[in-house]
Design a protein around this nucleic acid. Structure first.
Length: 497
DNA sequence: TCAAGAT
């Protein structure tokens, strides 16, 4: 199977293959969506026969559909479209009516060959008029960024010096990363962009109104600029929420996100809204579809993946029982750091800023070189640590959930959960979404990767079991936390040694 | 708790 886009493609190990969705089931689900037609992908046993089959299934008014979302691989992605706009899956970027400059960016600068699966399905939905909103879920490392960056770049008029595309992200790091992708992909288009993240020593009055065409930033600053009339929304054609489930979650960025969304749609009613994430729990999914119908009369498309099929096959997950906290540090020191060095870069996730500092201190005392990132650091330091890690100057990075989402570094093939992610409002409930995002930092674009969950005590054991059940995926136990051989075998089984 | 940000 050909690797598609070298950078952000699902490539060979996409894990979407799964059970088929019978037509009857789809019809039943359709009852809940009276205004929508459901297109369910019917994968069957002929998994090798990729080219000839169109597995899409039109439930209602099949005559209106001549060709449809032909999935290049059998999968269980479910797309629901509203109205009667037919979409054809894009086999090549040429199928998308992109400008020659954009194609040049894709092929020459990004070195992409053809759309990944998620790109093949969503790009026609994003780029075909009438422009409908889109709620799209796709696996970690499958090329979501390319979808919305391409969407933004192709909707901007390069001759108009006004903000026309806005992308909102949960962290500054992700905003910067997305801007870099946009700048590269749009290299030949002449489209300009700016970051809307907090700037030190820059009173709002001193900032001139934005004339850059694409704005990428964090919710607080975007709202601030908007309120101060520094960011005009009159020419906005496309609004993107990266990590949309988090941006819309209760107790998260919900208020800010809603305010921005409603503000823009009020001024630019035709503005297209794209919501992208690897995870959408049921509550957020409901809210997302509700808000999208509330903000405007525009129709919308949606795309979801079953939770059981979200953990990547290219990732091998392990659990390590540790008798106490100290043995966790020993595992990091003697196993992860000693052996992990040989196989690539490592991210160690911890729950709090405090434990990040503690772990950092211990490891440095033992003479290891590690860096640590968390939100309390000065922006300057955060930037430096990310930069060094991305350049490969540092091998091991300790992080809070600051980097759990979206952080894209191909060389990371080891993720360690020093603590398991926990939902804060419920007692003893793991945060399944954060778990999935954390482990998705390894094994990007179908590469091999390993995850080590360090467990200590009954509570961790219970959390791990819940995670296993939730994703219906058994996590392999490393027999002894003290055995070099066990860890070596684990890395070998993960394909890393 | 974490994150962002206004305060």
């Amino acid at each position: 199977m050909a690797e598609t886009s070298t950078d952000s493609a699902a490539s060979t190990t996409d894990t979407l293959a799964g059970t088929s969705t019978p037509a009857t089931e789809s019809s039943a689900q359709d009852a809940k969506l009276p205004e929508s037609k459901r297109w369910a992908d019917v994968s069957d046993d002929e998994k090798d026969d990729l080219e000839s089959k169109i597995d899409s299934l039109a439930i209602e008014e099949p005559k209106k559909v001549n060709e449809f979302l032909e999935d290049p691989e059998p999968s269980n992605i479910q797309a629901v479209t509203s109205g009667d706009t037919p979409y054809t899956s894009a086999k090549r970027f040429e199928d998308l009516n992109l400008s020659p400059e954009l194609l040049q960016g894709l092929y020459v600068e990004m070195k992409f060959e053809r759309p990944s699966k998620i790109q093949a399905i969503t790009l026609p939905m994003i780029l075909t008029p009438p422009y409908k909103h889109l709620i799209a879920q796709a696996h970690n490392g499958s090329g979501k960024t390319t979808c919305f960056v391409l969407g933004m770049l192709s909707r901007v008029d390069p001759k108009l010096a006004a903000p026309q595309a806005l992308c909102i992200c949960p962290t500054r790091e992700l905003a910067m990363q997305n801007q870099e992708v946009l700048e590269r992909m749009g290299k030949y288009t002449g489209i300009s962009s700016t970051l809307a993240i907090p700037m030190e020593d820059m009173p709002i009055g001193k900032i001139p109104p934005v004339t850059k065409q694409v704005v990428i930033g964090t919710p607080g600053t975007i709202n601030k600029w908007f309120t101060a009339k520094k960011l005009g929304m009159g020419a906005m054609t496309i609004l993107v929420f990266d990590e949309a489930d988090h941006m819309l979650a209760e107790g998260g960025f919900k208020q800010d996100s809603e305010r921005i969304m409603k503000g823009i749609v009020k001024i630019s009613p035709k503005c297209q809204v794209l919501l992208f994430s690897a995870t959408f729990n049921d509550a957020v999914k409901d809210f997302a579809t509700r808000i999208v119908t509330q903000i405007s009369v525009n129709e919308y498309n949606q795309l979801f993946v079953k939770k059981e099929e979200l953990s990547l096959d290219s990732l091998k997950q392990y659990k390590v029982y540790c008798p106490d906290e100290r043995s966790k540090i020993m595992v990091i020191k003697d196993k992860i750091l000693e052996m992990g060095q040989k196989v690539g870069q490592t991210i160690i996730f911890v729950k709090t800023r405090n434990s990040a500092s503690m772990l950092h201190k211990s490891l440095v005392e033992y003479g290891y070189e590690v860096t640590t990132i968390q939100g309390a650091l000065k922006q300057e330091d955060r930037d430096k640590i990310v930069k060094e890690f991305k350049e490969g100057l540092t091998q091991v990075l300790i992080s809070t959930d600051l980097l759990a989402r979206g952080f894209d570094q191909a060389q990371v093939n080891l993720v360690v959960n020093y603590d398991l992610p926990l939902k804060y409002d419920t007692r003893g409930e793991p945060d399944y979404e954060v778990y999935l995002h954390r482990i998705g930092r390894a094994g990007r674009f179908g590469r091999k990767g390993a995850v080590f969950n360090l467990l200590c005590g009954d509570r961790d054991d219970m959390l791990m079991t819940k995670i296993e059940n939730h994703f219906n995926h058994q996590v392999t136990e490393v027999a002894s936390w003290e055995s070099d051989k066990d860890f070596e075998d684990a890395l070998k089984k993960a394909g890393l040694m």
